[in-house]
């Protein structure tokens, strides 16, 4: 009688997710661009939502005024 063989499968294959590295970077960049556009077009006042470029430039200008 022929002996049956059962190859061991990788039972954890379903746990592995594809790594969408480009999508992750683009999504973050898109969010920052959208934020910048919202503040530049004046949809939201920069008093309540400073622009992403404005945030790091503020301490620089404050230091220059000293």
């Amino acid at each position: 009688m022929a002996v049956e063989r059962f190859i061991v499968d990788d039972r954890t294959a379903f746990l592995r997710r594809p790594d969408y590295r480009t999508v992750r970077v683009l999504a973050l960049a898109g969010l920052v661009i959208l934020w910048e556009l919202i503040t530049r077009t004046g949809l939201v006042s920069s008093l309540f939502l400073p622009s992403p470029i404005g945030v790091p430039s503020s301490p620089v200008s404050m230091c220059q005024r000293l």
């Binding site: 002996v3 049956e4 063989r5 059962f6 190859i7 061991v8 499968d9 990788d10 039972r11 954890t12 294959a13």
Partner: peptide
Amino acid sequence: IIGGLLPASSGRVYFEGEPREGRPMA
């Protein structure tokens, strides 16, 4: 690797014999 919790980079693992229904290999 034998338990199927990790894939081998090369080579293979197999069970030989008559399986019983509803009974896992390992």
